[in-house]
């Protein structure tokens, strides 16, 4: 009956990816949508560490959740927050 901790952690993280991904698609506020898209990448990078792929995790953490979020924020500012 006892679930291994690592499995539990993976399930929680995957749920986090799903929830933040759905939020990124459904939220009306652009700023919140961008932040939750970055959050999905952050959860994904932790999942990669759990799955023993630290190389991929590094790329995902710095590009997926760092640089991409930043570029989206600049793009929103440039387009005056319009859709």
């Amino acid at each position: 009956m006892s679930i291994p901790v690592i499995t539990l952690l993976t399930i929680i993280l995957c749920a986090g990816i799903l929830i933040s991904g759905l939020l990124a698609v459904t939220l009306d506020n652009m700023l919140s949508a961008v932040i939750s898209a970055g959050l999905a990448s952050l959860f994904a990078s932790v999942v990669y560490v759990v799955l023993a792929a630290p190389d991929v995790a590094m790329t995902e953490a710095s590009i997926g959740s760092g640089l991409t979020t930043m570029i989206f924020l600049y793009a929103i500012r440039k387009t005056q927050g319009g859709d």
Partner: peptide, 25 residues
């Protein structure tokens, strides 16, 4: 450090470059 130690530890050119770019950020 990450791209210099790419052949020894996890990471490499792409990862190191991305980390440097986050420094620029």
């Amino acid at each position: 450090y990450v791209f210099l130690n790419g052949h020894l530890s996890p990471g490499g050119g792409f990862q190191g470059g991305a980390i440097i770019a986050s420094g620029t950020m």
